[in-house]
Nucleic acid binder design. Sequence first.
DNA 1: CACTTGACCTGTCCGC
DNA 2: TGCGGACAGGTCAAGT
Length: 295
Amino acid sequence: MPELPEVETVKRGLERLVVSKTIKHVHHKADKSFPNDQYLVDEFMLGATISKVTRRAKVLLIELSSTYTIMVHLKMTGQLVFVGDTSRWGAGHPNDSLVDNLPDKSTRVHIEFDDGSILYFNDQRRFGWVKLLPNHAVELEPFMQKVGPEPFDPAFTPSVFIERVRRRNGTTIKAAILDQTVLAGVGNIYADESLWSTMIHPAERVRNISDAKLRELHGAIIAVMQLSIDKGGSTNKNYVDAEGKRGSYMEFANVFRREGQACTRCSTIIEKLRVAGRGTHICPHCQVQLEHKDN
DNA sequence: CACTTGACCTGTCCGC
DNA sequence: TGCGGACAGGTCAAGT
């Protein structure tokens, strides 16, 4: 579930919470959640200061003063939660329970800073990872080499989107926009929401969709993700931000996880189907495949 | 090559 | 209540 808006929300939280902090200890389990040589951890993490936090696609990049970068992918159930200086939050802050409960059995890595605060990487399903790389090696990672443009980059114009999405003319539009090499950051939630918004059936072949419609979709992807960032992302199940807070975008979702409920546009009951191997939510009245329409 | 499906994991939910 | 199986979904590997 962490898609672009969720990762962006975590990134903004970390910018506020951990930049300029110095790493004192790194606790980790020796598994693929943390595939790093111990001597590199000792040499380039311990004593290093966090200089900058950025995001590319769904990947978080935590730059250190040591010329190394901590690369984090949350995949489905990953969380990066900062705990420290609880006094300034006050009673009732969502972080309170986390202070008491972390680390827990989902904690794969935790980074302790010299002021006693701690950044936890939790991941129930262990698909996510935390990798330490020299700065120059980040862009050489295979994923970073092939990932498509950032949706909020001004260079990502409608024509750029159309040109890239048409490289996947033979597949369904949902598979095409989920493809991270077409554009960065779209996952299952925002794919369904942007397709509902533009009244495109997720199983429609890209080649059947007009440029005008793809132009609309370009705008909808950006709009939907911007709204979600404004709402702190979507908490479907596991996702929380860097302070342990849930996002509220799901309250604004029109189809995702709303099967059985009325479409907000036409009151038809939302259905769930399977497209591109994913659970997919549509309004069967608003989103009709072109070959099934009369004329 | 283009595209689809399965694997990676574990917790949760549903039906019997 | 217990138990098996389906499901969740980001990305890569394997299969068609």
